[in-house]
Write a protein that binds this DNA or RNA. Structure first.
Lengths: 151, 151
DNA sequence: CTGTGTGCAAACATTTTGCAAGCAG
DNA sequence: CTGCTTGCAAAATGTTTGCACACAG
């Protein structure tokens, strides 16, 4: 796990606590467990995935999948995680990093590669302007066969 | 409805019949009703939407939502329709046109505008190449507030 | 006739909601 | 203490499957 460029966990946690306080919400062990699990497992997960990861990481914690859904929605509303719905079954969530990125998805093994291209971003802005849209967000997915699966 | 640039319905129908014949499948009134409904209603619809449109257009036809799902899957496998899953609840389908396009989606009223930008397409190809992906398809969605909703 | 297609009901899968008890502040 | 949170079960959605009958070829 590369730590150099990433937000430290403590900073993330503080941001979360601040957010909770501002909204008169409570800091609970379940909420922290979900946040930490997302932090420790970089990648894209379904609520079910995350639920299982939390149970594995905290075998003694009593947690229900309902809480995972509720917490993910809370985190998404506050842009701490972001979600993306790929073709099949449900949304997948990941921790938002500071940097926006797009996804390259292998049809064969499901691998997801993230990338970012400044020129594409600029063109997207241009297209929005052309249609008088005030852009709030965007996502792009490229589907294909990754180099491993081409062999 | 602009007919000038579009495939005539008869051509679409012939292509569908050909496809059915090649796979030893049968041409039924329900299948035609769904195809025609998609043709007559440009736009992006959920299976439920399409089911209701078909019932409205063919009040005397006995049709179940199951058939709509099965037919949409059949049409999608054969690339006569394509689907896209937006954030909320389920896939939406539309007739495939010859031209690939991307989507500009209003967060407020749900309006969908289609567009295409050759430069973006080229950059997408470039990104795929950079990661040794063999590209099969891609989709891009820009979310924002449309000009009407900004008022 | 044969085998595919259909509608219905039931099964599934995923996500949300109602509720009584638990716990953070 | 107060009221937000939780887990559970049930409900609500969205989609697929099993089956007996219908019908296209």
């Amino acid at each position: 796990m590369k730590n150099c460029e990433r937000l430290k966990y403590e900073e993330l946690l503080e941001a979360f606590k601040k957010l909770l306080k501002e909204n008169s919400l409570k800091f609970t062990s379940q909420r922290e467990a979900i946040l930490r699990t997302l932090y420790e497992n970089e990648g894209h997960y379904t609520p079910e995935n995350i639920y299982l990861l939390v149970k594995k990481r905290y075998p003694d914690m009593n947690i229900g999948i309902t809480t995972v859904y509720r917490t993910l929605n809370l985190l998404e509303e506050n842009e701490i995680v972001s979600s993306i719905s790929f073709g099949i079954s449900g949304k997948k969530f990941e921790l938002s990093s500071k940097e926006h990125h797009d996804h390259l998805i292998c049809n064969c093994c499901g691998k997801i590669i993230e990338f970012n291209d400044e020129k594409i971003e600029q063109l997207q802005e241009k297209m929005a302007k052309l249609h008088n849209f005030k852009l709030t967000s965007h996502m792009m997915q490229l589907y294909g066969i990754c180099s491993d699966c081409q062999k």
